[in-house]
Each structure stands twice: as structure tokens, then as C-alpha cells.
Design a protein around this nucleic acid. Structure first.
Lengths: 142, 142
DNA sequence: TTTACATCCTCTAGCTACTGTAGGTTCAAG
DNA sequence: CTTGAACCTACAGTAGCTAGAGGATGTAAA
């Protein structure tokens, strides 16, 4: 039986985050000691590991909820899980494209800074000037 | 003189976002009509364009605040603006590296899915198995 | 057994950067 | 003068946590 702190360490999660996952129903309510402290078993460790791994891969908590649901029902079609992963891949690729464009522009800004006064600073100038923008009025995808 | 709606359109910003920027002190309080509606001039248009452009480049509002401050004081050294841009570039490059690793793993997941039942779904399996993880317990950088 | 102290508990608020809604007012065109 | 789009304030909500207050519990050493 693991305390919440041990579970946190084993999965690289903060204690508060585990309680938060419980609160939003992503983790089940665990058993408690007489004094009311949470105690976890291997099933919870596995589930939390799954969640954290998926988070590292950029899946949203909603997507993870779907994936956990699929994984809880082994008879269901694999196609759904595949679709979720594909959606995720697509998003990742879109972000990559954006970030690459940003890198190019930032590099240009940095390399053209000559180190004088801000009045002739290229960094500020570039930000003031929209004409070389990637795409006008595009949303930032963080 | 521009209404807030016109300013919004010209800069690709939502009206509420402009009011929000005013609230947090990123945009100045503009003049008002007798009836209390905001009216903007070219200075505000420039400032908001600057802010939006910087946001598109991934600068945080705090970083933008610093940049605006530098740009308001043309005597200051350009080095600070350059440092902010360099910090930003570094972050972008870190995110790129992470996302590329994610793309690799997601591609592997997706391509190995054979379309059977979830019980032998590679997507779920990969998420269950941490052994091939990029780096253990790494934070996700959104 | 007592005491120390790390860890646990709940609850609430805060973070970033917005976005949306409700309920009401103002402005410009026809 | 009327219509209706656009404006106003104020507040709540989003994701995904994170931090803090103030107090209870668990464990190990003295």
C-alpha cells in the first residue's frame, strides 16, 4: 500500500495533482486509513502512469478519459483509440509547423540586433512591423 | 477615431481581449465618447499591433510588458530586448525538440495499430508501457 | 510512552490568457 | 424617430494544475 506521496514520487506527479485527478474523476477514490489518509495499490499506480504518459504525449485530460474508457472495455474496437492518437499526431504536426516558423523569425530578430540603443533595436522594430508576418491574424497555438 | 470593434478587426483581436488588455494595464485607458464608449487613435492601434505580433511569436504578456517598456524608453540599451528575444528563441527550440520526440512516438503508435480489439491495441499498450519513454518524469511543455 | 516532525488532510484562491454570457445603453443609418 | 448593430459593465468559466492556510495523522527515535 502506497501513500499519496510515494505514488507521487513513483509517477513524477505532484501530490496536489493526484488529488485534483481524483476530484475530476480521472482517478478513482482510493481506500483510506482509519485516520483518513489515502492508500493506493498497483492498479492505481498503473492508471496514474498511463495518465502521466499520455499527458507527456500532449493528450488532453478529456482525450485521456476516452482512452481510459477504451482500455477499461477490452472488447471495443481499437479504431477509436487509433483515431484519438491520429488526432493528437495531427495537432502535434500543426504545432511543429508553427513553431518552426516562429524560430525562423526569432532567429532573424536576434541575429540582426547590433547592440546599440533601443531606438534602433531590430527586435522591437520587427515586432512593430507586421509586414513580414507569417500569416496575418493567425491564432497562436500554444 | 476608431471604435473598439474596428480596432479589434484591424488587429485580429477579440473585443473582450482588448478590454482585458486594458484591465491588466497592457493597453492604456482610451478616450471615451459622451456616452462612455471607447475611442482609439493610431498610437493605440500601433501598440495593440505590437502586442498581437509579439503574442503570435509566443511571447508571454509579461515579456511583452518588458518589451513595451523598453520601446517606451528609447535611450535604454538594446541588449535587454535582445535578451528577451533570445530567451524566447531558446524556449521555442526546447518545445520543438519535445514535439519532435512526441511526433515520433505518436507515429509509431498510429502505424502499429492493426485495427483489432482494444485488448491488443498498440496505442493503449504504448501508453501503458513507460519503458520506451523519452525521458522519465519530464514535464510537459505545452 | 512521549515527542518530534514529516507527511497527510480539506478548503480556498490563484495562475495564464483569454472567452462567453446577461442585462442594459449608445450610436448611426434610414 | 425608430431600428438594430455595436457598445457598456460585471461576473463566471475554460485547462490543468499549483500554492497556501490551518490543522490532523503516522512513524521512528529517545
Amino acid at each position: 500500500m502506497l501513500t499519496i506521496g510515494t505514488l507521487a514520487k513513483k509517477t513524477g506527479t505532484k501530490v496536489q495533482t493526484i488529488r485534483y485527478y481524483e476530484q475530476i474523476g480521472l482517478m478513482p477514490e482510493p481506500g483510506r486509513t482509519g485516520g483518513g489518509q489515502r492508500r493506493y495499490g498497483d492498479a492505481e499506480l498503473d492508471r496514474l502512469s498511463f495518465v502521466r504518459h499520455a499527458r507527456q504525449l500532449g493528450f488532453s485530460l478529456d482525450a485521456i478519459r476516452e482512452l481510459l474508457d477504451l482500455s477499461d472495455h477490452p472488447g471495443k474496437s481499437c479504431a477509436e483509440a487509433d483515431a484519438i492518437a491520429r488526432r493528437q499526431l495531427k495537432q502535434v504536426e500543426q504545432r511543429l509547423a508553427r513553431l518552426e516558423a516562429l524560430r525562423t523569425e526569432l532567429k532573424r530578430m536576434v541575429h540582426e540586433c547590433s547592440g546599440g540603443q533601443t531606438s534602433d533595436c531590430r527586435v522591437l522594430e520587427v515586432l512593430r512591423d507586421h509586414s513580414e508576418c507569417l500569416t496575418e491574424h493567425e491564432q497562436i497555438g500554444a
